[in-house]
Design a protein around this nucleic acid. Structure first.
Lengths: 340, 340
DNA sequence: CAAAAAAGCCAAAGCGCTTTGGAAGACTCT
DNA sequence: AGAGTCTTCCAAAGCGCTTTGGCTTTTTTG
């Protein structure tokens, strides 16, 4: 059932039917109802291929997926996707993942824009002066950055959480509890979120005349194993920290294991706060010692990004507004006063 | 730069240029070179929208993503995606995720097929007599099932692992070690993989004249918390099992925590074997007691599914061949002889 | 009431590609 | 040399939609 047939059986022109269906004003309301009705009754759905050839609109949002034999997709992605998908569904948007060589995403971005394969894209895990952001901005396709980049001579639209504030508050709490030597087990410090978190910790320390020791901050891929290793290294030193801030729950698993392996305890010997992106399958309150966290649902962020993309596609949102979400500090049993 | 312009500047017809580019035989090799050359020089890329309108081919593979406020995307998905994406990239395939109401995926499948939005689809986490499989089969679009369904009057193509064999071997090992009361903490038993795993355990027990106690098997969503709860429940009973087989590493985290909370030890009081899908961020050898596992890389499965989909799209693979991969049993410290 | 404006509809021209059905020329064969 | 066969290319017809420009008919206006 295509437009031609539908028009024919309604004894109308394709033009009128098309306009009736797409809500154009120059068609009689009575006629429109007739058309809508017949369309529904016959299950008519405009062929998207034809439509996109004619309009250039695809009804799809794009994401360039860095891949490679040694490239691991961030497990956070799936939660983000849950939120994004949930919103996208209600707006009949599909998501197209374009796999790209992790070291050459530019080609892929250019392709999907040149080919008009998607109406908008989003970018995640940005770094300062991220080339993808500059590129996509210059290509002129609507986009939203999940997270923040920095150091451009233009503004852009992003949705981020207050990583600095979250870790500043976490550190402040630890300091108030008497801790003087804090450590930060961070994610990849080439990414903005990690930079912001480190800054948060430093600012809190500075406010009390303290500093973050050179060797008390580490930047690693966020795996359980790396959390373990970092913790062992930290705690086996002379000036071992008495409190640790950790950038992910997964790493925190390793932290807890390391602390135990060393015969130490949380929070007796070491206080621990981790960032919680809210996974359904791993909850901080279920750690052997309930984990204090800075909490922000990455899933909600996914839904929000989808919402903004949809708004941009339909022209409802314009400009380069960035939004920063506050982060909850949730105190549980894993923090206590510094040991004597 | 479109076909028309390219043809014009080569003083050839669109037909010839199109054929030269697409490798049709009825064009002089000399001409073909000229065309290819000019195309490359001018960076000509055929407009995919136009091409798909004409051919119906999209260069995309589809996946219907169940979503909803209370629907969590399986964390395994991201690993599967890593493999799929890695292969797809090298073949210029994109993946389109079509979010659907988890309770009504049929509509979405029909849509993407009717609209010719993708060249092929894959289905994951199938159940016996899975309606999606029947539907997609009847719709006549190329597809691969990751996992297995059962009970159809037709054959279909799938890539699965030997879940039954894996859990049979795991159970057999435990039995050989003297365990008589095994328990199985399984995933959702409406899914085929869980059924097969349970069958594997039962078969191994039966071979030694043993059975799996009614209350020694549980089927839950695979979260850390559920692993914990199930273990507590199992171990606090009178005829507590001395060995546990567990369907995921994430649940195993909870199992370990529960055992510890009860003042018991692994493998002294309880032996544990879990299935490992090979996550980069959580490795069984790094558990406090290195975890014995049945291991199969879900990432490789993703790559294989992509490969088969590509083969089907290009007509290289036909028929309904199913393939079942063997699973490694990797013995580490978490198993030992049954306590006296 | 005639002229101007608005409403409602349509035919046809794209969008950029593939593919069908020839046609022209070169080549082979008797 | 004439008929038949390849080879190589082309014009034009789709694919199914949107949109431009124009044509009637109805309504409004001075």
């Amino acid at each position: 059932m295509n437009l031609k047939q539908l028009a024919h059986m309604l004894a109308l022109s394709q033009t009128t039917v098309s306009r009736a269906l797409n809500g154009y004003p120059e068609v009689n309301e009575e006629t429109r109802r007739r058309v809508m009705d017949a369309a529904k009754r016959h299950g008519y759905r405009p062929n998207p291929s034809a439509r996109r050839l004619a309009t250039g609109k695809t009804g799809m949002i794009g994401y360039v997926l860095p891949t490679g034999a040694s490239v691991d997709i961030d497990p956070h992605f799936v939660e983000f996707l849950s939120g994004l998908g949930d919103y996208a569904r209600s707006h009949e948007l599909d998501l197209v993942l374009s796999p790209a060589d992790a070291d050459d995403q530019e080609t892929t971005y250019r392709r999907i824009v040149a080919n008009r394969q998607v109406d908008a894209v989003y970018i995640s895990s940005p770094r300062p002066a991220d080339r993808r952001v500059a590129l996509v901005n210059s290509l002129g396709i609507p986009f939203i950055v999940h997270g923040r980049s920095e150091g451009f001579d233009f503004d852009y639209a992003f949705t981020d959480i207050d990583n600095e504030g979250a870790f500043r508050e976490a550190a402040r709490l630890l300091i108030q509890l008497g801790h003087r030597r804090l450590a930060l087990i961070n994610g990849d410090d080439r990414e903005t979120f990690a930079i912001h978190r480190e800054r948060g910790v430093r600012r809190a320390l500075a406010a009390s005349g303290l500093t973050l020791g050179e060797r008390h901050v580490c930047s690693v891929v966020m795996t359980e194993e790396n959390g373990y290793r970092a913790t062992r290294r930290l705690l086996e030193e002379d000036d071992a920290p008495t409190a640790i801030a950790c950038s992910s729950l997964i790493m925190a698993l390793g932290v807890v294991r390391a602390v135990r392996d060393l015969g130490l305890s949380i929070p007796g010997d070491v206080s621990l706060i981790a960032h919680d992106d809210v996974f359904p399958w791993l909850r901080p309150e279920n750690f052997s010692v309930p984990l204090s966290t800075t909490r922000s649902s990455i899933r909600l962020a996914g839904a929000r990004v989808a919402e903004r993309l949809a708004a941009r596609i339909s022209g409802l949102e314009e400009g380069a507004r960035g939004e920063v979400w506050p982060v909850d500090l949730v105190v549980r049993g894993s923090v206590a006063g510094a040991p004597a």
